[in-house]
Design a protein around this nucleic acid. Sequence first.
DNA 1: CGGTACGTTGAGTCATATCAACCATAGTGG
DNA 2: CCACTATGGTTGATATGACTCAACGTACCG
Lengths: 241, 241
Amino acid sequence: MFCSQIMSANIQYNCGEDCHIRSSSIFKHLTNEDLDKLNFDKKSESYKRGTVLYHEGSRINGCYCIQKGIIKVYKTGVDGKEQIIRFAKHGDLIGFRSVLSKELACTTAKVLEDAFVCHIPAQTFIELIKNNGTFSLELLQLACRELGEANAYITDIAQKTVRERLAEILIHLKNEFGLDDHKILQISLTREELANIVGTATESVIRLLSEFKHDKLIDLNGRKIAVLNEAALIRIANLYE
Amino acid sequence: MFCSQIMSANIQYNCGEDCHIRSSSIFKHLTNEDLDKLNFDKKSESYKRGTVLYHEGSRINGCYCIQKGIIKVYKTGVDGKEQIIRFAKHGDLIGFRSVLSKELACTTAKVLEDAFVCHIPAQTFIELIKNNGTFSLELLQLACRELGEANAYITDIAQKTVRERLAEILIHLKNEFGLDDHKILQISLTREELANIVGTATESVIRLLSEFKHDKLIDLNGRKIAVLNEAALIRIANLYE
DNA sequence: CGGTACGTTGAGTCATATCAACCATAGTGG
DNA sequence: CCACTATGGTTGATATGACTCAACGTACCG
């Protein structure tokens, strides 16, 4: 099997029974037969920060299941400005959109935190969908959930101010990546990256973050952001009206 | 069968062989058996302008295949402002997102132009997915295409000016609904609705439309919008860079 | 004929973008 | 070891796109 790999951190990944593919919600209802096929066809690899898994506009020959690390998925807009669409982490599946719609990749996927990733060939993936109704239903549910989130984000960007959106993003990041003991957000982003999620200028993010810090909603220490007053941020973001 | 219905325009719809469900891309690979089941379970109905097919936040018990007319699909944002997510017309399928993700409807669907619509019960729909790999694959492809469009729109709204977005929307509407012999856009929207697609204020749309008219890019006559210079609009919109 | 919804225009304001300068840090190569 | 460069962060000044508010016009409808 292709699956034994050594991470830089010396963690051994055995991609048979223990592999994340098994416990990840999207794969968990596969039959043993399907699972064997999948484990045989997939390729696991580790990637350093900065590596690009696939480029916007390129043909894509499979999708990626993230075991470890963080991947930044973004589109390049007018005059090269990147718009971050999502982050993928532990258990997430990316690239399936382009595989299924048979279009060229409409996003770029770049490693933010050293990652360990399984690559599933397009053919294997499509066979799986055709032959396993439960699997395809779950995948559909995943796609539909993402679609719902995308629609919600469209509404937010179209209607909310930068200030509201920044507060909202901080809450989202907190929910997705969590805080450590010191309430520090467990994802490290540059100010520019934050701006590229919110859809604003770097300087605006900096000014608003200082404002939030001044109001004791957050604390700042370089890229470390501590979330001190979640309730107030939620109020600012107009979330859960 | 439930399927014989009379439209206000006195057009008879026979939903067996002739029904749109057969020719619509998403249903065209169904087996005769599946098709019989579908035709038996579905309910066709005509709706007047202004009718709501389903409300945001309500439970939804099936999805809708549009045979005729135009449906406006929108989310309600902060302080009640509507954000139009898409329009559905002849051959389009809506509501499947909420059916599959088993969440409450995250949008409202309202009739813009008198419509004739088939309702497919959730259970029938889900069975179809589970039992027919080709169908579920095509549905997945549909969802993925919509997801790609949503991501592109996020990037646009986040990065482009209102002027660019309005030009882009005019092009999109032209591609989706076409022009008549007088180059008039074949969908009738209020200025407010245009604003609610673009994500701006009604007054801004009015001012920009007059500007486009002054520059001979479009012509205006009430809600009738004639697209005179598509190339220039595309340039303004920064499309196809 | 009054009512309601939609469209238009002008004036003033404000949030946010843009531009420019500067600092801190870290890595690079001579 | 020290300039040198690149990258990221910060702040201030200025410009402006877009929103808001308000008034008014228009058209249709019962």
